[in-house]
């Protein structure tokens, strides 16, 4: 199965609810709304054989959050699955039931960007201490000067 066939399979299955295109050799971009995340993930995992979970990148845009799931196949084709998340309600369903390897990556995105993954078995901060205030990768979190002793 090559890149075009994968895009076609996705479009046949989900119609105009998703936007999918080939970016370059071995890279496909798929854009969805957050409601579809479980359906699309299951389809990718079960039907299209995307078994390797690389990571989640959470991005803070001026008008929305975006979670980018990087998943790939054994032949190196990688999908950047982008889920839009509204600014005022940063929640999305967890994909740990499909890719168990997403566990820590979701915790990281929660810790640093403040996105809440519903259904995650153990959603708590991973790098920062429990009592840390705020989520540092958000754009409204400004770097502070180091204080001198």
């Amino acid at each position: 199965m090559n890149e075009e066939e994968i895009v076609k399979r996705l479009k046949d299955r989900f119609g105009d609810r998703i936007e999918a295109y080939v970016k370059r050799k071995r890279r496909i971009v798929v854009k969805i709304d957050r409601e579809l995340i479980i359906d699309v993930s299951k389809f990718l995992f079960e039907e299209l054989d995307f078994k390797f979970f690389s990571t989640i990148t959470a991005v803070d845009f001026p008008d929305r959050f975006e979670c980018i799931y990087h998943v790939s196949r054994h032949d190196g084709i990688m999908i950047l699955l982008k889920a839009r998340i509204p600014k005022n309600d940063p929640k999305i369903k967890s994909v740990t039931s499909i890719w168990p390897g997403a566990d820590w990556h979701e915790r990281e995105a929660y810790d640093l960007m403040g996105i809440i993954f519903e259904g995650h078995p153990n959603l708590k901060r991973i790098f920062l201490p429990e009592d840390f205030k705020g989520h540092p990768l958000r754009k409204d979190f400004k770097l502070q000067e180091a204080s001198w002793f």
């Binding site: 690389s54 168990p100 390897g101």
Partner: peptide, 19 residues
């Protein structure tokens, strides 16, 4: 860069370790 993310191998490898 507006956003830069490093996918590091040790992170995923350690997350599998307890299993």
């Amino acid at each position: 860069p507006y956003r830069i993310k490093f996918r590091v191998p040790s992170f995923a490898n350690l997350s599998a370790f307890p299993h």
